[in-house]
């Protein structure tokens, strides 16, 4: 089967420290891939390179056969590759609703020439997006937080909102940087249930996580990386029992 995302021989170094070293991976459509590894293994750098925030030194990244390297971040996002950030990035001083509304793609009202000519169309679209936002919030049981400021939410709720932003943006591929780290078990369950349902909707998931238990519950495929290299890849159970992984996680 053709991979939806093909990362091929990526190198990236910062002032001499190697962050990604000949890293390759083929991600199958509608799958959930987990990435584990010690701190500084290059996991977040991989996300930054895929989403265009950092240029790779060499190598290529293809999405459905289309080359992504060199595109600005917003164009990559418009292809449907949407990410979250390890240090949560949301607009904390605005309500949840505005954060999610921002995420919708191709809004007529984002184009200046439409604002004064198609005000009706914009209104209709805005109402539709609002409704979708409420449905999304409902699906995680936080509908009542719609008008709350993001900064007043709990950490777990903020992580939920950032996941919803990806979905509102119509992501085909979501890159989740530690979606359940530092979150209480109850919310972990809600978030993992949500993630597990994504492939049914045709969404491909790649997630970075330290929580082994969470990884084992949702991933179809697991990658272990260290010092920018891929050390092991395959069935999660198998990777977990890899001696290198055991060693890294026992330390």
């Amino acid at each position: 089967m053709e991979p939806v995302l093909h990362v091929d021989k990526i190198y990236k170094n910062f002032d001499g420290t190697v962050a990604l070293d000949n890293f390759s991976v083929k991600v199958q459509a509608a799958s959930i891939t987990g990435i584990i590894g010690p701190n500084g293994a290059g996991k977040t750098t991989l996300f930054n390179v895929i989403t265009g925030f950092l240029p790779p030194d060499s190598g290529s990244i293809q999405y459905n056969g289309q080359l992504l390297v060199g595109l600005p971040p917003y164009k990559i996002a418009r292809h449907g590759i949407i990410r979250t950030f390890q240090q949560l990035r949301l607009i904390t001083r605005l309500p949840v609703l505005d954060n999610i509304l921002l995420a919708f793609q191709n809004q007529a009202g984002e184009r200046l020439r439409n604002i004064f000519t198609f005000s009706r169309l914009i209104k209709i679209q805005e109402q539709a997006n609002r409704k979708k936002t409420q449905e999304l919030l409902d699906s995680l049981g936080i509908r009542d937080k719609e008008n709350a400021l993001v900064e007043d939410l709990s950490y777990g709720q903020q992580k939920m909102v950032s996941l919803l932003c990806c979905l509102a943006a119509g992501a085909k591929v979501v890159l989740l940087d530690e979606p359940v780290a530092g979150v209480n078990p109850e919310i972990i369950n809600i978030i993992l249930d949500m993630i597990r349902k994504l492939p049914e909707q045709g969404v491909t998931v790649i997630l970075i996580e330290h929580n082994m238990d969470a990884i084992m519950r949702v991933c179809d495929n697991l990658i272990f990386m260290d010092q920018g290299k891929k050390i092991a890849e395959g069935d999660p159970e198998m990777v977990r029992n890899n001696p290198a992984v055991i060693e890294a996680y026992l330390e």
């Binding site: 925030f53 949407i82 990035r89 607009i91 904390t92 605005l94 793609q105 809004q107 184009r111």
Partner: peptide, 20 residues
């Protein structure tokens, strides 16, 4: 919605870019 993008640029450019 354009105004919303402006405000989000003011608050967090990286987040805004990541949403396309």
């Amino acid at each position: 919605p354009f105004g919303r993008i402006l405000k989000s640029i003011r608050e967090d450019e990286i987040f805004t870019q990541a949403l396309g």
